[in-house]
């Protein structure tokens, strides 16, 4: 049984001024082939002007099971939002 091509994640910048966004994944033997395949699979209709590929195994992801401890602490910190602060109506440009 031969070795399988590894999995790569594809990120595409659709135009200058925008960030690269995750588009999907594909299999390729190496980075160069991943880039070429990404061009054919994900940008057949001018969807991109720049592509990043990264082997999927190099991505470390948070686990949804830890979402509580990771993300909930932000919920009660409403003082991080401008609407927390009371200002008189007469104040302009703030």
């Amino acid at each position: 049984m031969s070795k399988n091509w590894p999995l790569w994640e594809v990120f595409v910048r659709s135009k200058n001024g925008l960030e690269h966004r995750h588009f999907g994944s594909l299999h390729a033997a190496d980075a160069e082939m991943a880039l070429e395949n990404a061009r054919d699979v994900y940008t057949r209709r001018n969807e991109g002007i720049s592509i990043w590929v990264i082997e999927s195994k190099n991505i470390t992801a948070s686990n949804p099971e830890n979402n509580g401890e990771l993300f909930e602490p932000a919920q009660d910190k409403i003082y991080r939002h401008p609407t927390f602060y009371d200002l008189p109506d007469e104040v302009k440009h703030m």
């Binding site: 399988n4 999995l7 999907g24 994944s25 594909l26 299999h27 054919d40 699979v41 994900y42 057949r44």
Partner: peptide, 26 residues
């Protein structure tokens, strides 16, 4: 030719999406 190439692409999008459920392409 473009249509058939699209179909290859659609197959690949869908295989990739399917692999996120922990099944391999092979």
């Amino acid at each position: 030719l473009a249509k058939v190439q699209d179909e290859a692409g659609h197959g690949l999008y869908l295989y990739s999406a399917c692999e996120t459920l922990g099944v391999t392409r092979n």
